[in-house]
Amino acid sequence: MLKILKYSFYDLMRSRWSYVYFAFYLLLGIVLLFLNNDLSKAVITLMNVIIVLVPLIGTIFGVMYYYNSKEFTELLLAQPLKRSSIFLGQYLGVAISLSMSLILGLGIPFVFYGLFKSTAIWDFSLLLITGTFLTFIFTALAFNIALSNENRIKGFGYAILLWLFLAIIYDGLFLMTLIIFEDYPLDKVSLVGTMLNPIDLSRTLILLKLDISALLGYTGAVFKQFFGTNFGLMVSFVALVLWVVLPVSRMTFKSKKKDF
């Protein structure tokens, strides 16, 4: 698997898309920091970008890579290699190279700005960690979509739909549910609802850092326990890990059954 990972990663590191992605984050970091000169504001803007863009790029890139490397995959399949290691290797190659672009692209300007001397370093690290998680989650989801759809156009369509659903529509439905059932105690429901969507989950993690003052204004005991203690942080991280593990296991399962 490590060999495949090595080659996929190597392959991606030379594709111009990685550079575009890297350059985009580099530019974003520079613009946010040096034109604005306000670290806290930069972190908030970055959060919005990470929550929305990282999943989108993860899905699109994952689907694209899968379809584009189909021949390579077939070449590998005839080699004495396990299927699971081929797909895991490719998946990790994509996810790691995307994460690297993200971390380096944003990290470099922030380091130059003097991040290590600033108190925002924890907020910033949390942002990068959630960004990395989102990359891993959405690349895995993208591989799942691509594995289940031979037709590229369909695959891309589903990928975009998935992103649209998780990034926007889900929250709309979520909000409506909460408003319709506002007479009932909803704190558990709302926390569960958050866990079921990786974007919401990452958002909550960041909220824990940025908006803890507001979150503690709510009266529910479950909320209080969740946000007031490290419990919330731990549960969210466990859920994020699950969100990586489940699609990846479906991916390996699915890949074992698939014909090429």
Binding site: D11, E74, A78, K82
Partner: peptide, 22 residues
């Protein structure tokens, strides 16, 4: 039972499409 038997096989695929970056 496993993929190791493929060490005994050399295979020439029908359409030679390789990763174009390499």
């Amino acid at each position: 039972h496993g993929s190791n038997y493929r060490y005994q096989i050399d295979y020439l695929p029908q359409i030679a499409n390789f990763p174009s970056n390499l």
